[in-house]
Amino acid sequence: MESSQHSVNLVLLKKLAIIALVMFGFAWALVPMYRVICEATGLNQIAVADAAPMQAGAAGAQIEMTFDSMVQAGLPWRVRPLTSHLKVKTGEFIRVDYEITNASDRRMVGQAVPRYLPAAAGEYVKKLDCFCFKQQSFEPGQTKRFPVVFVVDPKMPRDISTITLAYSIFEVPGQGGL
């Protein structure tokens, strides 16, 4: 092969290699892009306090709520809602308490993630205070009690009559002890 041909080929090779490197960078750039899109559209913002709905205080339809909790297999948390069932009215300010125990012999930092059933109810449960808004740290064997304060938005469709609110507790790696 002539050397001029070879140098032309090398130029194209370099350009294509740069495309590949840029695309590798693009994969990492998707991380902040995803966060920005989620923030801009308000999607997936579970750890932020909601504003109380306009009609809060005016009692509305009656709904049944169940409070639940989940711990991933292998994680030494004990989580217990102090109230497991409650009849509430939409627009009413509700407070329930959760008790979380670090059942291990080391310091741990946990993050709770809420989940709603039916999922469609999620956007109508307006949480004003919640332990899930930030990471919580626990001494070995420590038990802490946390409040959750929320209002069920009266705008919620009438066909939702029962809501389950369940928290999963995860360990934040690298934040606790060993």
Binding site: A20, M23, G25, W28, P173
Partner: peptide, 23 residues
């Protein structure tokens, strides 16, 4: 050329999540 590097990026993030404390 456009997408294999993206997969490489994705699995590299899995790798750092697994071993280097990223989230």
């Amino acid at each position: 050329i456009a997408v294999m590097p993206v997969l490489a990026g994705a699995v590299t993030m899995v790798l750092t999540d697994r071993h280097f404390g990223t989230h």
